[in-house]
Design a protein around this nucleic acid. Sequence first.
DNA 1: CTGAAAGCGCTTACAG
DNA 2: CTGAAAGCGCTTACAG
Lengths: 338, 338
Amino acid sequence: MSKDERRLTSFDVAARAGVSQSTVSRALSGSPTITEATRTRVIAAARDLGYVVDERAARLRSGKSKTIAVVVIGRAGQGAASVNPFYYSLLGSVCTAAAQQGYQALVSIQSEPEQFFGQFIERGQADAVVVLGTATNRQAWDHFSDYRRVQSNLAFWGAPFDGPGYVRSDNHAGAKLAVERLIAGGYKRIAFVGETDGAQRQFSERYEGYRTTLEAAGLTASEAITAPGETREEQGAGAVAALLESGDGFDAVFSACDAMALGILARLRDAGQSVPEDFGVVGFDGLGVGAHSSPPLTTIEPDFAEAGLNLVEAALGGADDDRDRRVSVHLVERASAR
Amino acid sequence: MSKDERRLTSFDVAARAGVSQSTVSRALSGSPTITEATRTRVIAAARDLGYVVDERAARLRSGKSKTIAVVVIGRAGQGAASVNPFYYSLLGSVCTAAAQQGYQALVSIQSEPEQFFGQFIERGQADAVVVLGTATNRQAWDHFSDYRRVQSNLAFWGAPFDGPGYVRSDNHAGAKLAVERLIAGGYKRIAFVGETDGAQRQFSERYEGYRTTLEAAGLTASEAITAPGETREEQGAGAVAALLESGDGFDAVFSACDAMALGILARLRDAGQSVPEDFGVVGFDGLGVGAHSSPPLTTIEPDFAEAGLNLVEAALGGADDDRDRRVSVHLVERASAR
DNA sequence: CTGAAAGCGCTTACAG
DNA sequence: CTGAAAGCGCTTACAG
């Protein structure tokens, strides 16, 4: 610790300010029942002494922790290196939103079943917990989904399921933005790439938005296209390859996520298709790496600050919070649609 | 909380296991002075009851917090959105390393002077603090650098200064790897892009490594090249533009960081230079986005897991830790050098 | 508006 | 190896 031999306590501040310990506590915690004069004196004494309250004691007595635990789910067997930039940005937004609400953020990265842990509230370490990360770690989501039944101060982003506490993008609005952008670019035959079987719940909503927007414009929607692959990029590449081979004359793709769109772009280049001239692509997520692809990827981006705030509010609200939280999205114009 | 009306305490577990409260504490905390039989009984009682220890109380009494505070510095005025992927990866590695050592991670993102805060130890919230982030926020680094004088359980990555507690890449080895790779690719006139005036301390070390490696190979090193710009990418683009205009016949660049290298690649493409055929580029940092640039960027990547571990150890070690901590690096072969 | 006292739920000397 | 007691440093009823 520092050079002081003994820890300073509120007693020392009380002595110096000539008040009782209780008054020190009230003055420092901003209690309205304290004279401004007294408060000023106490604050000065604390400053002179270099005193700060011991949060362990304050929290034990008050029963609150003023902390949000944030669990980041990684791919099984891969740890922190498998967390993609999208979730790191979301993590950053949650930390910022928590700070704005006067909370601190206790972060843990969990990818293996033996480390799945969410009992931060029971241990008095947090008042609520936010879980976010890849939908592919099914075991992790099963774990936290079960846990939500006994602990309602839990909010999620990225889960393959749906239910209370789940926050997500306004997928319908996003899909509409993407598809309308492609229609405006003059593309005639627009495909959707991404699974709609529920592995990633949000994809189904994006497909629905794709379908209704196309139909509203008098165009025909096709079945969602998918291809197997270890990574999202391989899946996207495979899907667009199938699409080109189909001979159905597709000239544009709305990809359910940017990672797949990146694979789509790479495959299109290999196939000699020029984007955006011959073929249009719009993704979803607002991944920063899309700004460096060739061509840079036009995409739908959720408002990260709003997402962070919604997650914190939903977690803190617990069972009383039954709002259907959908985060607004906007179109990021880059260069993959003419 | 959950459905129980009253919080469970170690007393409840003691009653159920037929032992005293002290025995419960010792059994659960793994004290070696407890019979295996007793421990088993206590653990079973705790499990049956669904009891977990209240960390607020445990920490108050023990005086430890088993937590590492991680401060992520963002660009002034920009918040979480300005934190680049490199620092998020580092943050993830620190969280993982902390967990491996039995510590939790309390994360805060700080970019404005009014939020600079590091007194987590004095408040009993952490046993050590790790500060990382962009070197460009000079005020933030000044703040934490001053703080290191009174609080030695502090470690840094990315600081524009040097001193105790600073962990960094093995820049000499990295520069050597990069330059030797370019020499092996047959490039004849290799430039260095990046400032060496100390704004980013590590850059000077990379320049030195560049210079000595080139000289050892009997080639001539040039002065470091820089150009003004709001972002690293603009700086890189400007520098390579100057380089091409110089007419000095440069055919390769070792860029002090990937962000600048990305700008270099973009500018080279605009100038009609083909990479890696006419011009070679090697960056530094191992940024994930480099895998999606065109061409994909060959780069030097520090070992993130090792970096996280070193930061945690250095912070926990405090004044007793005077090791010069340099994290090993490796070459990531992509496609910007022939 | 302020103070004296109690107590939050643990861990840790101190005994035996 | 286990127990009874004290005490970590606050906040919060309870008084006045």
